[in-house]
């Protein structure tokens, strides 16, 4: 009861600003209008266009484009790539966050910067570096051919490129979160006799679950949507090494717009679900942050 009231008070304190620190109504509404116009031009109208174009030739064409074998195989490959790269980067993210947030060591900030590297690298280059290693002329090229392994123009290459471009997401989400939470609860568990794994499972992970989920969702969205890096390593073999975004490109270049937008709409829908989940998680973690805040206020 009291908490609801205090939230409301908090909310009002944030919204209601004194006359001295707010603008006249006409300025307010003009600024809102300009911002919305900008967002419409670059966000809302293109988003609406995806769904409109997808359904332009009717619902049947739409469904047909989604269930034809090449589309289904692209969906399957996309799911596989995400299903492998998300857990890999999840485990990495937890390990990296544990090492950097719970301990002090030399070169820590360098390490954190290096984890960020894939954000700064063009996806095209991300694909290129794996071609240099595993491609025909690459370091392992001959060995791979001799042993009849395929990496480039095959699923392993697609997975590797996807892992690279989604590499930092979970770690970047968890490192600041775990740094902010400190290590008192872990130390408390340690004094009470818990082992390392017990601390991780019973204390640390439950505390970072929202941040973890957030990172996973972002990783997943990027993994399923990656285009540039995957485009370089895939070889665009229809029904074999095509992911959904690549399939969109092929259809589009064949002027099969309705089908291209049909598959694109599926990806756009995925993006919207991602945003919805993201908003929900932000809401959840803000709520738990507020209760923690009350805890420290008393």
């Amino acid at each position: 009861m009291s908490s609801t009231v205090s939230h409301l008070g908090h909310y009002q304190a944030k919204v209601a600003r004194s006359r001295a620190t707010s603008e006249p109504a006409w300025i307010r509404w003009s600024l809102i209008a300009i911002a919305l116009a900008f967002l419409s031009l670059f966000l809302f109208i293109p988003l609406a266009a995806v769904f409109t174009e997808a359904l332009r030739k009717g619902f049947e064409t739409y469904i047909a484009a989604l269930i034809e074998p090449d589309a289904l195989s692209a969906i399957k490959l996309t799911v596989i790539a995400a299903a492998i790269s998300v857990p890999l980067n999840l485990v990495f993210g937890v390990a990296a966050a544990w090492a950097t947030a719970k301990f002090d060591f030399k070169g820590k900030s360098v390490l954190i910067t290096l984890i960020d590297l894939p954000f700064a690298v063009s996806p095209v280059i991300a694909g290129l570096i794996y071609v240099l290693i595993f491609g025909l002329q690459g370091w392992f090229g001959e060995w791979l051919i001799d042993n009849d392994y395929k990496v480039i123009f095959a699923i392993p290459g697609i997975v590797l490129a996807t892992v690279f471009v989604t590499f930092p997401f979970v770690a970047r989400e968890l490192i600041p979160l775990m740094q902010a939470q400190g290590k008192e609860e872990e130390e408390a568990a340690l004094v009470l006799g818990a082992s390392g794994w017990q601390i991780l499972w019973r204390v640390t992970l439950p505390n970072i679950k929202w941040g973890l989920l957030y990172g996973v969702i972002l990783t997943n969205a990027r993994a399923m949507g990656e285009f540039g890096a995957v485009s370089v390593v895939s070889g665009h073999i229809r029904g074999m090494t095509n992911t959904m975004p690549l399939h969109v490109e092929i259809l589009y270049n064949e002027y099969n717009y309705a089908a291209a937008f049909a598959v694109a709409s599926l990806l756009a829908f995925l993006a919207l679900v991602t945003l919805a989940l993201k908003t929900f998680i932000e809401w959840q973690s803000a709520r738990s942050a507020r209760t923690t805040e009350q805890l420290s206020e008393e």
Binding site: E184, E185, E187, A188, A189, L190, V191, L192, G193, A194, S195, R202, V203, P206, N207, S288, T292, S296
Partner: peptide, 29 residues
């Protein structure tokens, strides 16, 4: 090791496990 010292430690900010009930906090050890 800390775990073998048989000490009880009360932290300045209590370090209670936020996601556990009072009962589970006390039962943790």
């Amino acid at each position: 090791d800390v775990r073998e010292r048989e000490v009880g430690f009360v932290f300045q900010h209590y370090a209670l496990f936020r996601h556990m009930t009072v009962f589970e906090n006390v039962a943790f050890g």
